[in-house]
């Protein structure tokens, strides 16, 4: 076990959080990421027991999730796996695939809405973030998109929960964009 102390995407040792009104946002520093791409003629694997979803979807649960990233390509999210060699674990579970470590390629931001039975604050947030028909990011859906001139991967985990993955190097710009958006939405019109 290395004695080097990791830093977050924001250069600190503790995860960054913010709350504005009904919406809150927290950096997820423990989830590991690995890309799985199917090689020619290979069977679709079931890594960590995950059924790999089709376009526009994600599958799994809080422990492990898979997002469709393109033809024959998925991103696997493993809760609490960031400390280990998650890509190696996935490679072992998907032997006929090209597996690439992605954990530190992304900053993961977990956005939640409280007191939100009907998902209204989250729906309003989505109108400010992404140029998508709301159905594209209905609960259970996931997609690539862009916000604030930055590419993102968005997973609508629940009516009141949205997971955003952005370039780790652009974490500060992404945060400023999201934080400003949440802050502005928190002021009643």
């Amino acid at each position: 076990m290395t004695d080097l102390i990791p830093t977050t995407a924001f250069g600190t040792t503790t995860a960054r959080t913010a709350t504005h009104g009904a919406l809150s946002m927290a950096e997820d520093v423990t989830t590991a990421l690995a890309s799985v791409a199917l090689r020619r003629g290979a069977d679709v694997p079931v890594p960590l027991g995950l059924p790999l979803p089709g376009p526009g979807g994600w599958a799994g649960a809080d422990g492990a999730m898979a997002v469709c990233m393109g033809p024959d390509q998925w991103l696997i999210l493993g809760a609490d796996g960031a400390g280990g060699d998650f890509a190696a674990d996935i490679a072992a579970a998907a032997p006929d695939c090209s597996v690439t470590e992605q954990t530190d390629g992304w900053v993961i931001l977990d956005i939640r809405s409280k007191d939100d039975a009907d998902g209204a604050p989250m729906a309003e947030l989505l109108t400010r973030l992404v140029n998508l028909d709301p159905a594209t990011l209905a609960p259970g859906r996931a997609t690539r998109s862009q916000t604030g001139h930055l590419g993102i991967i968005a997973l609508r985990l629940a009516p009141d929960r949205l997971l955003l993955l952005g370039l780790r190097s652009a974490a500060e710009s992404l945060w400023q964009h999201l934080d400003g958006t949440l802050r502005r939405l928190a002021v009643p019109r």
Binding site: G148, S169, S173
Partner: peptide, 12 residues
Amino acid sequence: GDPGTHFKPTRL
């Protein structure tokens, strides 16, 4: 909504 520094994203 992103005037100033973050009008254009930067990478660190």
